[in-house]
């Protein structure tokens, strides 16, 4: 499902942390409706690249473009408005809020009613809240979390919490969905289920997906293309087949 329409362009991205070069001259292109994987040994800089793309870090050099627009210096919450959403490696849910509320939070930017409308509960308030409500329920249904909607996020089992992270990211209506190790800590059955879910998400919500993962079966199973990172540098990119037989990649993971 690769088109020629580019969603994300990363050009010569580098970041230094006090002398330590975490990422060096990273280049990446993601096409619309692609599913791209970012892999590499631990500490290669994958999450750092995520943080750069989502605006949590500022690069020392390089550019990031979303749908042709330069977002390199745009602040994080504005990037979400422009269409980038992410999940976190260590689950960062809003623990004491319900599942439904967690998802609704991310829908925030799609509502426009103000304080006056909140206090006096005007028609605008009810219309927009209902829309948010319906959308949130839809997303929860796709991810199989509908039955938990009024449960506190901290009470969910681990696998469901990971899915809730994804549900929340989807609520902001992203063009690009960045998943940071979505399958971490899952058993093979849950991982299979996640692969299915991601396929459904891609289909139903028409999002482009970039993900970080260590589970090779998972990565090779669903990614259209893969980028391989080691010591902050890109060492290979291509289709799963190409990556599996790439000498540099094998060297990076297994050593000489």
């Amino acid at each position: 499902m690769i088109t020629n329409d580019v969603v994300l362009v990363v050009k010569d991205l580098s970041i230094e942390f006090g002398g330590l070069k975490a990422v060096t001259n990273f280049n990446m292109e993601i096409f619309r409706k692609e599913l791209v994987g970012l892999i590499g040994p631990n500490g290669a800089g994958k999450t750092t690249i995520f943080n750069l793309i989502t605006g949590i870090y500022q690069p020392t050099s390089g550019k990031i473009q979303l749908d042709g627009e330069d977002i390199t210096h745009v602040v994080t919450h504005k990037r979400v408005k422009k269409g980038i959403a992410r999940t976190f490696q260590n689950i960062r849910l809003f623990k004491q809020m319900t599942v439904l509320e967690n998802v609704k939070v991310a829908y925030h930017n799609n509502m426009t009613y103000g304080i006056f409308a909140s206090i006096f509960r005007t028609k605008k308030y009810w219309v927009e809240e209902n829309k948010a409500h319906q959308k949130a329920l839809e997303i929860l249904e796709v991810l199989g979390l509908l039955e938990y909607k009024d449960e506190l996020a901290q009470n969910l089992p681990y696998g469901k919490q990971r899915k809730l992270e994804i549900a929340r990211a989807l609520a902001s209506n992203p063009k690009l969905l960045c998943l940071d190790e979505p399958a971490a800590g899952m058993n093979p059955h849950e991982t299979e289920e996640l692969m299915e879910t991601i396929k459904i998400i891609q289909d139903k919500f028409q999002v482009t997906i970039l993900l970080i993962e260590h589970d090779m079966k998972f990565v090779m199973g669903i990614c259209d293309r893969i980028y391989v990172l080691n010591f902050g540098e890109l060492i290979a990119k291509g289709t799963p087949k190409e990556i599996q037989t790439n000498k540099e990649v094998i060297k990076a993971y297994l050593g000489e």
Binding site: Q96, V105, A106, H108, S118, E129, A132, S172
Partner: peptide, 24 residues
Amino acid sequence: KSRYGRAILSIREDEIASEASGIP
């Protein structure tokens, strides 16, 4: 009990995740 409340509570729960969910 409106989107304002949700935004504010989300900041309490996890500021970074809140920002990453689009809350200014």
